[in-house]
Simulated scan of single mutants.
Amino acid sequence: MRLARTAAVAAAALAVLTMSGCIILAPPLPTRQPQQPPSQTPRPSGEPQIEVRPVEPDAPITTTDETAADTGELYAGSQGETVDGYFPDAALDLVLEPTRGTARVAPGIAMPAHDGGDELLAGTPHTADASLLLTTVGRLVLEADDAEYTCSGTVINSESGLVVVTAAHCVFDDETRDYYDRITFEPGYERGDAPFGTWEAERWWVPDQYLESNDRWLDGADDDGWMGFDFGFVRFAPQGETTLEDVVGGQGVSFTAETNGVVIAGYPGNDAFDAEVLRHCAEDELDYGAGGDANYGADCEMGDGASGSGFVSNLDPQTGAGHITAVYSNGGETGAYGPPLGATAYNGLRTLDD
């Protein structure tokens, strides 16, 4: 859920927050000309393609593959379709490892279970040699017309070293039904300090499934299918010859639909939160299909502004390295919900990361 940054638009944003949940800060910014949406053209045929095998949601992944990072099952081994008739992104037998540290595969989670949104590693400086969770997770600022919002995102392992994963509704504005005019990212942000600089978005991608079902939902149709594809990627411009990963490292990504519990870290800004401090929750048991949506569900109270936060599994508490399996889409006091990343997400990453 995004969080609006201006008091003037807070009332108007409430209807959107029930669906997408970002936050509003201050003061209004000048209107900018919209950027062109990213190209969704596949890579040139002459470039090498990675061979991957999609795994259907009802296929038991763990009995057929040898991926070292696999542990446990969620919707793998059971019917992926929810009671409302929605399907998740099809699982893919592929894991991208973090670019610093090693993800630890072990039963349970690497941090104590906690649902209250406490500050992550309070008192630990956000420096390049700190935990990957402290350096790779940052606050996104989204600009549209005269409004400004915040979401959360995480730098991931990518060929360009410039890609952040977040929620689709943190890239596509539900009010204007267009991409945001401008997106900036501050990894490691804390109370006005951006220790790794402010990065400017140059391209972005969201799934067609999200755009189509989101439009139906906004037009009053009974279709919450957008929730199963509420993920996206943003590519940021390098600073000189330096990439985001050069500065902060990159978190791993799992497209396998498997998890052994997650840590969710981001910048919630509603109720007791202020979108100024990196906060987290940790849950060792996830539900799938809660409320009829094709989402993971965790017992976490994060809320507006936490949208786009990674669900990090296989976390090593010493290095903060793990595998993002989903991103925060919606939630609040009742929990945190996010769509698992699969074949669609991976293909979108490849499209953007040339």
Rank of each mutant, 00 (worst) to 15 (best):
H169I: 02
T154N: 06
A168F: 00
G161C: 11
S158N: 15
Y179D: 03
E148F: 03
H169G: 12
E175A: 15
N157S: 10
G153E: 09
V164S: 12
E175T: 15
V155Q: 07
D173V: 01
E148R: 11
T176G: 00
G161H: 13
D178N: 15
L140K: 09
L142W: 07
H169C: 07
N157P: 07
L162K: 14
V165Q: 13
C151G: 08
I156W: 05
E175G: 13
Y179H: 12
C151T: 03
Y180M: 08
D145W: 01
T166I: 01
A147R: 08
T176H: 00
T176Q: 00
T154H: 00
I156M: 11
H169D: 03
L162P: 15
Y149E: 12
T154V: 05
G161S: 13
C151L: 03
R139A: 11
V163F: 10
R177I: 02
S152V: 11
D145S: 13
C170S: 12
R182G: 10
V171F: 04
T166L: 01
Y179L: 05
A168W: 01
R139Y: 08
D173Q: 01
D145G: 11
D146A: 11
A144Y: 01
C170E: 04
R139E: 05
Y179G: 04
T150W: 00
D145R: 12
A147K: 12
R182I: 04
Y149G: 09
V171G: 07
A144H: 00
Y149H: 13
E175P: 15
G153R: 04
A147T: 14
G161I: 11
R139I: 10
V155P: 14
R139C: 10
R177V: 02
D181R: 09
R177P: 02
D146G: 07
S160I: 04
D146I: 13
N157K: 04
I156D: 10
G153L: 01
S152G: 14
S158L: 14
V141M: 09
T166H: 07
V165I: 15
L162H: 13
V155S: 07
L140C: 12
Y179F: 12
D146Q: 10
R139N: 11
H169S: 09
E148I: 09
G161Y: 06
T150I: 04
V155F: 03
C151K: 05
S152E: 14
V155E: 10
R182L: 06
L162D: 14
H169N: 09
S158H: 15
L162F: 08
V164M: 06
R139W: 09
A144S: 02
E148V: 07
A144V: 05
S158A: 15
D145Y: 00
S152M: 10
Y179T: 04
V164Q: 06
Y180F: 15
V141T: 08
G161M: 12
T166R: 03
L162Y: 13
V164P: 11
I156K: 07
C170D: 12
A144W: 00
R177M: 00
R139S: 10
F172P: 00
